[in-house]
Design a protein around this nucleic acid. Structure first.
Length: 431
DNA sequence: TCTGGGGTCCTAGGACCC
DNA sequence: TCTGGGGTCCTAGGACCC
């Protein structure tokens, strides 16, 4: 048995916790460079604002409907997430933190009334952290997800599902008839694992609801689509195929990519950007104790602008796996020099670290030549510690010919205003 | 003028091998 | 008409997730 605990409109709610006057108001949290909406309050959804809506297209709602746009504050959300997760963990013996606002809880071995218990945990999270959650319970992860969808929908859209399933919904305690009714009331596109593409194909074939999907023959689904969708079908039928992953595993690839606030044409700023990204990627790499074998560097123009378009990437193999920022930065710069071409309005670039290996495993077979340095791993650890203690970029790796990597980052940060809407009249909560 | 960032898994098809 | 058969490895791209 699984539960899925999920914070409502997470980023938007986090902001509201610290500014209670925002409650009930249409509010969106904006992505990097205030590009588009990545979270919406209920009132913002009611205005018809879609997930990912570009800010410049909805900015008019500030005047007409009192819409508030806030630049994202990810450290705050991360902190709120930690608090929420530690309380959610009280629901059962195991926990998988699935994303910043969601965790699965393994409920095997739990006795007593799970619905009542879930209501208590939910109330505690609301009281102690200030985040309202939806909790779904089911015999498989997919059913827990679906029950969570029911819990949230029943609360927000009265009439979509029975009212007694609001906030906490356990699929497991429903009768067979009730389960069927819930599945029939759920659009196939709302099932976890069914995206836009496959959702459209299913509907074309007359498969419109979760109930229809559950009734398809798994072998046929595998042939027509894939084992992934076959698993979804089986999970909808109550056969658990996706286990709980309570030990977070290391990333298999690490990426740092950004869109620019303004387009960039010159090589210099591009080199600054990838230097910064490679350095940040290196920090993440060392944090999980891995070495990278390859560095992928890419850049492209905005797909939303008229031609000429440019999109290019290159794989830069490292002489041997490393976590040394100096080597990663050098590889990223070499890659950028290789793909760069003047004459384009570049909108985005990024650095990815690939073919990661566990550093302890690799080091065991390291056979260094006489006098060869061990990748300055001690120095890197010191830099990471200083930056953790005194703030990002207190110490950073410079590169010959590209001395201003941190300047690029600083300009990026300054360009993002903390708030796009004046909040002078909104009081800040005091403890 | 202005359109996010970071992941995972699976599959098909080509290269290569005996 | 029919052109061997089977295996592995790698990669690019698709689809999904939040």
């Amino acid at each position: 048995m699984f539960a899925l605990v999920d914070g409502n409109n997470f980023y938007a709610t986090c902001e509201t916790v610290f500014r209670p006057a925002l409650a009930g108001r249409p509010l969106v949290v904006l992505s990097n460079n205030d590009g588009c909406a990545v979270a919406r309050s209920e009132a913002a959804k009611a205005l018809g604002i879609k997930m990912g809506a570009p800010w410049f297209q909805i900015a008019g709602l500030v005047e007409s409907d009192g819409l508030i746009g806030l630049s994202a504050n990810f450290p705050l959300y991360g902190d709120m997430s930690n608090r929420m997760m530690s309380l959610a963990a009280g629901l059962g013996p195991t926990q998988e933190i699935y994303s910043i606002d969601e965790s699965f809880i393994g409920l095997d071995g739990m006795r007593g009334d799970l619905v009542e218990r879930a209501h208590k945990i939910r109330a505690r999270i609301l009281q102690w952290v200030g985040i309202p959650c939806g909790i779904g319970i089911g015999g498989t992860k997919t059913l827990a997800k679906l029950a969570n969808h029911v819990a949230k929908s029943a609360e927000r859209k009265p009439g979509s599902y029975p009212a007694n399933l609001a906030r906490v919904c356990s699929f497991a305690v429903l009768s067979a008839d009730e389960q069927q009714a819930v599945l029939q009331a759920t659009a196939v596109g709302d099932v976890w694992g069914v995206g836009r593409r496959i959702g459209a194909q299913l509907k074309e074939g007359g498969v419109n609801t979760a109930w229809d999907l559950a009734r398809l023959d798994p072998a046929t689904v595998r042939r027509r689509w894939s084992v992934v969708l076959e698993r979804t079908v089986r999970e909808l039928r109550g056969q658990s195929c996706i286990p709980l992953e309570d030990a977070p595993s290391n990333k298999k690839q690490i990426a740092v990519t950004r869109s620019f606030g303004r387009s960039v044409s010159e090589l210099g700023p591009m080199l600054e950007a990838v230097s910064e990204f490679a350095s940040r990627a290196g920090e993440k790499l060392r944090k999980q104790g891995s070495f990278a074998s390859q560095v992928y560097v890419f850049a492209h123009t905005s797909p939303f602008r008229p031609p000429p378009q440019f999109s290019r990437g290159v794989m830069v193999p490292l002489r041997r796996p490393t976590a040394d920022s100096a080597l990663l930065v050098a590889a990223a710069i070499a890659g950028m020099r290789r793909i760069y071409e003047p004459g384009y309005q570049l909108a985005k670039c990024g650095v990815m670290l690939l073919d990661l290996v566990e550093s302890s495993l690799y080091q065991a077979e390291l056979d260094l030549e006489p006098g060869e340095d061990r990748d300055q791993s001690h120095l890197m650890g010191t830099i990471d510690q200083l930056n953790r203690r005194f703030g990002k970029r207190t110490v950073f790796v410079g590169s010959a010919g590209v001395p201003q990597a941190h300047e690029w980052a600083m300009r990026q940060e300054r360009r993002t205003p903390q708030y796009t809407t004046r909040l002078a009249d909104v009081p800040i909560a005091r403890a």
